[in-house]
Design a protein around this nucleic acid. Sequence first.
DNA 1: AATTCAGATTGACATAGATCAAGTGTATTT
DNA 2: AAATACACTTGATCTATGTCAATCTGAATT
Lengths: 193, 193
Amino acid sequence: MFDVFFSHILAKVSLTQAEKDTIKTFFVSKKLRKKQYLLQEGDVCKYMSFVEKGLLRSYNVDEKGDEHMNLFAWEGWWTSDMYSFFSGEKAVLNIDAIEDAELLMITRSDFEEMTLKVPVMDRYFRILFQNSLVTKERRLVSSNTHTAAEKYIQLAQNNSELIRRVPQNLIASYLGLAPETLSRIKKTITSHE
Amino acid sequence: MFDVFFSHILAKVSLTQAEKDTIKTFFVSKKLRKKQYLLQEGDVCKYMSFVEKGLLRSYNVDEKGDEHMNLFAWEGWWTSDMYSFFSGEKAVLNIDAIEDAELLMITRSDFEEMTLKVPVMDRYFRILFQNSLVTKERRLVSSNTHTAAEKYIQLAQNNSELIRRVPQNLIASYLGLAPETLSRIKKTITSHE
DNA sequence: AATTCAGATTGACATAGATCAAGTGTATTT
DNA sequence: AAATACACTTGATCTATGTCAATCTGAATT
């Protein structure tokens, strides 16, 4: 159950067996069926969730009812509405399962307690958030700098697993494109080589 | 010199005097004149810099030579090309001063040493990065969800200091807009109320 | 005070990508 | 196997925003 979890943490920091045992006590596990919600906007995001298995997406819905993908999380990723989780305010994001999933979840107060009891977890999350920041920074630069086609090509190169596992209309939304646009882009790309 | 610095850190974590003294030893200070570069793309970003005073901007330049604003940093903010700083690879961002500035700078190896000697700094940066992530998450959602006008209005409401201190063409770039577009947007907004 | 120069505005036009509307293929459910 | 729904494609427009060029303004430099 904690296999993927600890292998991902140990890739960033070292843990004693005692620390591992302590950490385990703060998490609850949950299975999620395809299409099932983990979080709906308007609710408070009570958990930060680590994906042991499966694939989830988080997205927001605008006034017109259109969905805008925020990010995808599969084995080894964390997902939550971070703002809601840390502030206790209502979530603006929805999270649901694209594939059946197994999660390890921690509440805000347990998160605080865990970092106090096992301070090296501050370091783990420092590094985790640091890496996410770099990725987000790059994605934002890319979203301003590149054309639709360039953005897709970049994504396909850096994230081939995403392309394989996620329906194309969600990829389009992730890139801020209409599904029709992405369909057309793919046609011109494949014909070009 | 360390006034703003410690007041910002102490807002997130507690430090003993001994810890403060240790932390100080890892930083060097630097003054920067308006228009002066802190970092040019292609160089490695050797420092992460805390802004004690003044205003800096980081941006990247595309193949056509157009600038795309990444973010602005004034008193109390950190700035760097995070990817370059932590990986040692060449920077893609440029950083320069919009106003004369005073900085506190730390190298990568000193950053590592500092977090090992003063582990509570892992916690400080965990919280710092966590907050930045939330902000970036929101900005990205907003950039996909809203029209140009909506983005500007949101920014103006949440970041009036930015509007006051930063030239309009850079604000435009920050929002991913042509300067002409922002100019026109402002006109329609003001006439509407 | 005169001269630059950076920033902001305005107009005319171009275009990437969105929207609307059919239609096709292929999974999933019954 | 039929029925239904979902993902994807294609074509015909529409529109928000970009681009190019001219002008204006005020602040900085000489």
